[in-house]
Nucleic acid binder design. Sequence first.
DNA 1: TTGTACGCGTTATCAG
DNA 2: CTGATAACGCGTACAA
Lengths: 364, 364
Amino acid sequence: MDVLFRSARPYSMICFINSIRRFGMHGGLKPTLSDVAKHARVSTATVSRCLNMPDQVREETRARVEAAVAELGYTPHFGGRALASNRTNTIGAVIPTMDNAIFARGVQVLEEELSVRDITLLIATSDYDVDREKSKIRALLGRGVDGLILVGESRPPEVYDLLNANGVPFVLVWTYSGRCPYPCVGFDNRRAAYAMARHVLSLEHREVAMISGLTVWNDRASQRVQGVRKALEEHGLALPPERLVQAGYTLESAAEAAEDLVDLPTRPTAIICGNDVQAAGALKGLRRSGLRVPEDVSVTGFDDIELAHAVTPALTTVHVPHRRMGVAAADLLHRMIGGALPGEGIVFETKIVERESLARVSDE
Amino acid sequence: MDVLFRSARPYSMICFINSIRRFGMHGGLKPTLSDVAKHARVSTATVSRCLNMPDQVREETRARVEAAVAELGYTPHFGGRALASNRTNTIGAVIPTMDNAIFARGVQVLEEELSVRDITLLIATSDYDVDREKSKIRALLGRGVDGLILVGESRPPEVYDLLNANGVPFVLVWTYSGRCPYPCVGFDNRRAAYAMARHVLSLEHREVAMISGLTVWNDRASQRVQGVRKALEEHGLALPPERLVQAGYTLESAAEAAEDLVDLPTRPTAIICGNDVQAAGALKGLRRSGLRVPEDVSVTGFDDIELAHAVTPALTTVHVPHRRMGVAAADLLHRMIGGALPGEGIVFETKIVERESLARVSDE
DNA sequence: TTGTACGCGTTATCAG
DNA sequence: CTGATAACGCGTACAA
């Protein structure tokens, strides 16, 4: 254990040491570009070029500079760089939440993908709230991000005005409706939900209900509802208000929603949920109601996060290409920052993954 | 739907508009401090003071400046500010992963707490790997963060040297062993695990096994093992190698670990897990083995994330004060950045929350 | 209380 | 291929 802290010193001593360093040594605390330049006996311009366009510098000179950089332990000063180049090598992402895993995977991929390109990801959360999202976007813009990743396409026009006025490139993820004038990297939520609903119907379910996320300013949630509704209507069925309940993205609120649903005069045989968290919550609620899944009621999820196979029964759900969306979004945005036009965006296919929570309706 | 995109324009047109803006209008794209100064007929110094030390400016002057700021839509340039003040109002956090919810809640709180103080949180992930952690710390330092939040205390000395050489304040969270020379905000992992093990023993379990996280450079994991071992030894029991399996932080690897454990010649009656994700995985593995929880085997978790009550049976686990750790860490670090000495750090208590996965050993 | 003037560390534009 | 030098936007002594 002791070895871990071989370099340990009380904090006050560290401060002291640092202040020594600041004034003693070879002249100052953090080496700057011109320190490196002196050390390598070249101009600051050359050092800068070594860092940013290495191939425009003669091999030998570059070697000398690199040696100096290494010896001095030089790191470029972020502020200076941002000021002079008017770029931060930072892109921002505003996601609804980190509390569940829905966006976590995608963000992780995004971060990896961007860090390869030597750019940093700044993550902010909106808690599924438009106003908070706007203020986070403002904050990110204020920090001079070079680009932005946002979730979904439906937000007040003034937010898009803010974005456009600033002239930062941005891409919208987790959505691709075909109607959006901005570059999207995602999938068609409506179509995916439609497919799931048809699958449910193909298993003879006729009494189907839905637990949806809040649909205000949330195109993913509302399009999923639309998809389900369309499938039902094609079968001559409806999704009446009492069969569609909006719930928060927590286990408990979905659990309560499920309890309400099965208390209805004619109990649904299947509950389609807007996402896996809600489906897991529904499972919980149904258990509390003494109902078995899928024997008494079937449940489906959406997103295919790890939770989907952690619960019992494991969720039949819609698989979403988290990883591929992440890399595609990173790639597109990076190109846009480089000046490329966004083009058409990218659509991915989703697919239904069958596990245990959905079964053919029992014919008792 | 159409209303959403009232401000929609094709991307190429946006670029065009922006370039108009750049050259037309009142002289330039983004207003600067001196634009504001001109507009308010004061000096740049006064504008700067209005922003940073408002009470040193006469009421009336300030009003004029604020009006100008509003009218021009001025936002301070991040780079310029960082360069001149040598502060970024940014703190960095390196956490093991965002893939599960273990750290998500704490980070979210941290972010909220810091954004109140008008400082931005920069999140990076290490994937439970020391080298990656070091490189992330480097990257964060390179971006001039004013402070750092790190998880756990056990890391190679050179990392602490790097930190100290840079002179950035940092605080360690999720840990508080009492032995660490750096400021910690957390709880005693060893003690918490010890308490859980004693609880298990009090329910007559004598054949207990453990699924632990990887303990290399992970003080949380290794201290939890120590705690369990200590409790067992006090009862004259041991935790032999075959009863202690290290698994990754995924459902599947913990599931396999559990399957192995119950295949042992004498089957454990209780499996203590290093965290909730692993406990959920264990549940899965036991189900595959055809064993009932808790009737055949009891399982306990650690951390009390939402997953703990999403699974069936709900996990008996150790509750950790995610939120309070987040605010305390934010507060302490903020004070340290302001120049305060770190003091003693902060310890929180944990407590066992009893749910369904742990039962008295059945006396068949 | 306010203004002047300089410096922060880098990049970029020119000549050479 | 390299070097001088002028921005870049802001904070802050210092002077008024």
